[in-house]
Design a protein around this nucleic acid. Structure first.
Lengths: 239, 239
DNA sequence: GTCGAAATTATGTATATACATATTAGGGCG
DNA sequence: CGCCCTAATATGTATATACATAATTTCGAC
């Protein structure tokens, strides 16, 4: 990581991100010149430059020589790399990441659980719900089922210190996954989790993961429409 | 962007990325120390540091004080997204497919056109709008820009009998594409095209296509939320 | 007035330097 | 042998500085 937790450059970065994401500085707005920020934060131009360059790379601002730096329209560009690690995605914007484990229940699988996981026999599942934050703002709601017959160690994990995804990546190999991506209107549950209005458009990413034909986990991530965009690059496979 | 095209720091960055992504440096491998790279590239430590910090932020390497920088093992998944031809998608549902060409204009590229296409010089573009139907219901709105300096033949095509996508596939080779997927609320234009309410959630797929570094076409497909879902299989890879 | 050259300005990249901090290695001592 | 202190080392952050580059603006020649 380029910056340690309390570094000045990190502070500049998250201050500005915050202003942009909260709408204080709208798209098209010219943010202060480097030399003004240099004065405001009482630091060298290099430090300001590093922070602004990073914001430009993250797609939040656009820099024009001789003219200054401007807030970009939200959808015009975002992360270049396809990264499904939420922490990394959040930190790319310069805002601090944290998550909250909302709930965790062990239960015998219901019919709905089995359908979601793709299980055919009954068994124990662990249902975990989390919220992921970018700064103080909710970034993503996560609702997950873990198949305890495939991952019995999960029963010992509270998911308070580490969120389910990194824990699973470290504990269970997997060899296949399927994603379903769609848009939906926020229902009350999602709206309150993400702090948006009921009916607001959301991007939903559902993932099912298998290890040697055995379902491991099923998870649904819901993002507010403005906050997220998926990017995929590829070359033609045939042709 | 922190780096201009041919900058040294950019070169270091891509050299190292290349070695990691190609597997020359496997996960766990210690990459040369900053002072070694300083010697190799004949530059200052700051320049090397900037490149390595960026790689760390992108998740390709992990840096440990006193020990050095190490290639990380894959921790995220890159998409292998298969986005099919719309006709095929519609016909898979059993409904008859047809499309309607709504408009077609040739014009000199505006600043917005150039941004969408990723063009840096002015030139002529063709803007085409279509609607695709599943049975009698609108399935998808398509708004497309074609770079006429890359595909001059498109000027002769009206796109009344054949829709732009299959025409382009048959006329222009392409070697790279980028997709952006997000959710949005229907504005008036989309709402009337898809026959849904303003504010309804929609799934947006934007695609840009290149042929030998030259932008060929940019297209935005908008689907009503209920009508469409993307399915992707993901294989583990270096993120 | 219009065109084009020159000055101005903000960003882009790179250098040398300094000190801070985390982690490991090694040495002295009980 | 284990423990603590110290030294060594690689990275982390910040500064001042320099020159390059792109985009405007200014201004003089015509």
């Amino acid at each position: 990581m380029t910056a340690e937790p309390g570094s000045l450059h990190q502070r500049i970065l998250s201050d500005i991100s915050e202003k942009i994401l909260s709408g204080v500085w709208a798209p098209g707005h010219r943010i202060p010149f480097e030399h003004e920020l240099t004065a405001e934060y009482n630091c060298s131009r290099m430090t300001v430059n590093k922070a602004l360059s990073q914001l430009a790379k993250a797609g939040l601002i656009e820099r024009r020589r001789r003219s200054g730096s401007f807030v970009r329209r939200p959808h015009s560009q975002a992360a270049i790399l396809e990264i499904h690690d939420i922490r990394t995605e959040v930190e790319a914007t310069g805002l601090p990441y944290h998550f909250e484990r909302v709930s965790r229940h062990k239960r015998r699988s219901s019919a709905e659980d089995r359908e979601l996981l793709g299980l055919d026999a009954t068994g124990s599942v662990l249902a975990v719900e989390c919220r992921h934050f970018a700064g103080k703002r909710p970034f993503c709601q996560e609702k997950r089922l873990i198949n305890l017959s495939a991952v019995p160690e999960a029963e010992e994990e509270e998911f308070l210190e580490i969120s389910p995804n990194p824990w699973l990546v470290g504990h269970v190999p997997w060899n296949a996954a399927e994603h379903r991506i769609r848009a939906m209107a926020a229902d009350e549950d999602v709206a309150s989790a993400l702090d948006i209005g009921v009916g607001s458009p959301c991007l939903v990413v559902e993932r099912r993961t298998w290890n040697a034909e055995r379902p491991v986990t099923q998870v649904r991530f819901v993002y507010a429409a403005e906050s997220h965009e998926l990017v995929a690059r590829f070359a033609p496979s045939q042709g």
